[in-house]
């Protein structure tokens, strides 16, 4: 009983790690305040769910989910060069709203607010992942792979250019870097992994509705990125695990379920706010926020 509960939280933590480290790539490493991360996640989740329901194999669904999310990541970064940094936050947040509206209203495709039910658990090379314990293994492997790829990006000279854009974009341009292309790549790569995370979530939860794209749900991941420390992937992983477990005791205190969700948001957001004020480098970050 407790083990099953633990496994279900660990699965969510692993999916959270993928989402958070990919968000870190844009926010922490490139300095792009991307508030549309959950839109990419939802695009991935729905793409994957629809394909899986149509009978396509797991590897195809998860890759298509990532690629389609990446495509939207590229699309959303088209005006990135002309707008001020804080407008990007607004544009990406607006994008999140649009995706939510489309998921809710394109009923022929998404089944609207009723959502998509009966998403099959994946099968791969003859393995069946319908057991949560097996599924945890699959998610953990993909989370590890995502982490390593993003780590590889950030420690490579490519990541160094991303960081230079975060620190001083004009100086990076003056050294000859095509910062527009770089920012687009960062957004695309970040969206790809968000799409992958969405795909895994759809497979895990087996039932999907538009609330996965709700902008409110972004706050835990934004909190993880800032609390873990901008520019620190290790900190992000630790924060993702801690913050997934942190509000769990609320479940046992006996709050009505409608309040638990809101209370959880308050805890995350309050934690984020206190970190911003009192420990702006986060717990593991090296990067100053100024």
């Amino acid at each position: 009983m407790f083990l099953a509960y633990l496994i279900s939280i660990l699965i969510l933590a692993a999916i959270g790690i993928i989402l958070a480290v990919s968000l870190q790539l844009t926010v922490g490493f490139t300095g792009l305040l991307n508030l549309g991360h959950l839109a990419f996640y939802a695009i991935g989740a729905y793409t994957s769910a629809l394909l899986a329901l149509a009978g396509y194999p797991f590897w195809f669904c998860i890759l298509t989910a990532g690629v389609l999310a990446m495509f939207f990541g590229f699309l959303i970064s088209l005006p990135i060069n002309k707008i001020k940094k804080d407008y990007l936050a607004l544009a990406t947040m607006g994008f999140s709203f649009v995706v939510y509206a489309v998921l809710l209203n394109w009923t022929d495709l998404t089944n609207g607010p009723l959502g998509l039910a009966g998403i099959p658990r994946p099968q791969l090379f003859g393995f069946d992942f319908s057991q949560n314990s097996n599924f945890l293994l699959l998610v953990a492997i993909i989370a590890l792979a995502s982490y390593l790829i993003i780590k590889l990006i950030t420690i490579s000279p490519f990541g160094r250019v991303l960081e230079s854009i975060r620190d001083n974009e004009l100086a990076a341009k003056i050294l000859g870097k095509n910062t527009f292309k770089m920012k687009m790549c960062a957004m695309g790569a970040s969206a790809f992994f968000a799409g992958v995370a969405g795909s895994l979530y759809a497979y895990y939860i087996t039932y999907l509705d538009p609330s996965s794209a709700d902008i409110m749900q972004l706050i835990p991941f934004l909190a993880i990125v800032i609390i873990g420390g901008l520019g620190s992937l290790e900190g992000t992983v630790v924060a993702a695990i801690v913050l997934t477990f942190l509000p769990e005791p609320l479940r046992f205190i006996g709050f009505p379920s409608s309040i638990i969700g809101a209370a959880r948001q308050v805890i995350y957001a309050l934690f984020l706010l206190l970190i911003l004020i009192f420990k702006p480098k986060g717990f593991y970050g090296k990067v100053k926020l100024e």
């Binding site: 300095g31 305040l33 508030l35 940094k85 804080d86 936050a89 409110m216 706050i219 934004l222 909190a223 800032i226 809101a262 209370a263 948001q265 308050v266 995350y268 957001a269 309050l270 984020l272 706010l273 911003l276 004020i277 702006p280 926020l289």
Partner: peptide, 17 residues
Amino acid sequence: LILLTASFALLIIFESL
């Protein structure tokens, strides 16, 4: 950008409250 992030946190806090 930090002020913006903080304001986003405030938005979520008070909506939830």
